[in-house]
Design a protein around this nucleic acid. Structure first.
Lengths: 342, 342
DNA sequence: ACGGAATAGTTAAGCGCTTTCCTATTATTT
DNA sequence: AAATAATAGGAAAGCGCTTAACTATTCCGT
């Protein structure tokens, strides 16, 4: 049906080995032969089968990528970065989403069945100690995590310094004069949540302000949850003049809730988000937030992974890129004295 | 290195053919043998190689999907839907992005080299008449387009009825009493733009209002462009009491620009968007927009494609799902008489 | 009890490449 | 001019599955 390497070999009057060598730029093919082969390739419209090549080489030039979903801007950006870098290096990325922890295993199985050469993991349900991943790593599969994780020498990871990010956000609010700073966090077991919260606590501590668990409200990254959290905080009588939402979507939901309660942003409550999604600058008010180079995460991750595949014995390294505070208009100095100051 | 079908066959004391048949549920394998095989599989942790299977069967159980990018919510949703449906049917989706028309060809080539069984196309630069796609379709490759396209019997497509969507948006504004309705459109050569604009014109016409090209401003789907368009419209002295932005992101940019010019939404200008992205209900004001079942598009597309692959001779069909107007708070009756009414 | 179906399992030929040996030719050195 | 090295090209053995074709066994009905 389709044209194979045999057709090309025949047409060029050489063996399939020579065709293969020509196409893979192996030395020791004369210029004359090379030309003949190339011409036959062009004439027949030959396109080597990646499947057959994978079969013969035992490498698929494919990276598996697993994320909770494909629609969240942060995941999508990292994936896009990984795709771009992979393609530049002649790899492809096979993406799959697994929202629930239980979906991870079957997805992983299928990716392995497809013989991916390495794995990119954005999923919070999976880390280096996970029961699924550990045996694979031990068997030599290269994995890079696109989430904060303890640096270990056996595993690669690329991520933003979330702790410093959380610290910067809080520090900024503190600098503006706020003392009662509420925070809306993500699901409790996710590294992103934990690190950003740690940064928040660190900034507070440094300023001599006691950490108040009542000022922490748990969301799930959705705007709905941000909205709900603010109402809960307010219904619970919590007093605060600033709010650090661990992502922009929750920040937006929070702003709406604040308005509904008659609170002006930033007049009555300052808000800072995290991620700097493209719409954040068009929010009302434009959102002050922490910009993460998401696309770069993906690019670096793919680069590191591909290198690890090529040089299996190289020491694994982890990368941590900085988040950058983008100041817009959602923050202001506190206008009313906070209760904590009496 | 990894365990193959030979290892399983040996362990179970049968031939590889029997193992293969057992695993693919071919009839005529005794219960006893089946059990032996399954046990050997379990004991060895055997995982069939999808690559070898593809090689032998000539089918990869992989769908190629090409979109302009992976981060736009609309594309990502369709892709996610396609992924989900594909996995349910034992397929995988290999995604690639090509923003520029020139990037499409190499991407397509690579996907074909990877022997995708079918193609999902979300890219506006590619349609059924495209020079890249036509020969492939003629060679029997199954393709489904996830964009509006003329129904032809040789090609599948799934999309929203964009014309009716544009019509509904405009109709709604007209019903509120608006007569001077500006519109911000997408790039001129994209089917989405064209259809939504056609719907807009149809609604106007039906109401006996002449189409005024001066009220049409061209954006590129980004919030920045929506922002710019409004300023241009206003700088050009265009008078309008309502605005139909062809997507939510441009609508958000437009709202910001309107505010900057001292215009209240919906007090002075009503705005309607298109897409109903998750954040739209949290915009200020919550955006009235057309909801598209994006995920469903992707699911249907994958389903149709897989069916077409399985039954190559079946007549191709196209699906058009309806967009639904979601009324929120960004529209109101006009408060000032529009110039056109003198 | 016998012939033909139905059932169970095996053999072996691919699928389209890559790659390791080999052999043959040409260039270089002494 | 002979020995050696460098360069060119080919033969053939896989890679790990599937599947057509075939053989062997069991089960019927008559």
């Amino acid at each position: 049906m389709s044209v194979t390497i045999y057709d090309v070999a025949e047409r060029a009057g050489v063996s399939t080995a020579t065709v293969s060598k020509t196409l893979s730029n192996t030395p020791y093919v004369s210029e004359k032969t090379r030309r003949k082969v190339l011409q036959a390739v062009a004439e027949l419209g030959y396109r080597p089968s990646a499947v057959a090549r994978s079969m013969a080489q035992g490498r698929t030039h494919t990276l598996g990528c697993i994320a909770p979903n494909l629609t969240d801007y942060t995941f999508a950006s990292m994936i896009e970065g990984a795709h771009a870098e992979a393609r530049r290096r002649n790899y492809f990325v096979l993406t799959g989403s697994a929202e629930e922890a239980a979906d991870v295993k079957p997805l992983l199985e299928e990716m392995l069945a497809r013989q991916v050469d390495g794995l990119l993991v954005i999923n919070p349900h999976v880390d280096a100690r996970s029961e699924f991943v550990r045996p694979l790593v031990e068997q030599g599969l290269k994995v890079v995590f696109l989430s904060p994780s303890r640096r270990t020498s056996s595993v690669l990871s690329v991520s933003c310094d979330n702790t410093t990010g959380g610290y910067q956000a809080t520090r900024y609010l503190l600098g503006l004069g706020h003392h009662r700073i509420a925070t809306i966090v993500g699901p409790g077991n996710e590294a992103w949540t934990l690190e950003r919260l740690a940064g928040y606590r660190k900034a507070l501590l440094q300023q001599g302000i006691a950490f108040d668990p009542d000022l922490v409200s748990r969301g799930d990254w959705t705007p709905e949850s941000g909205y709900r959290c603010v109402h809960e905080l307010l219904d619970g009588g919590r007093d605060f003049t600033a709010l650090f939402a661990q992502n922009d979507k929750m920040a937006l939901g929070a702003i709406r809730a604040l308005r509904e309660r008659g609170l002006d942003v930033p007049g009555d409550v300052s808000v800072v988000g995290f991620d700097d999604i493209p719409l954040a600058r068009y929010f009302d008010p434009p959102l002050t937030t922490l910009h993460q180079p998401l696309q770069s995460f993906g690019e670096h991750a793919a680069r590191l992974l591909i290198r690890a595949i090529g040089e299996p014995d190289r020491a694994q390294e982890s990368l941590s890129l900085a988040a950058e505070l983008v100041i817009r208009e959602s923050c202001a100095p506190p206008s009313r004295p906070s209760l904590s100051r009496r």
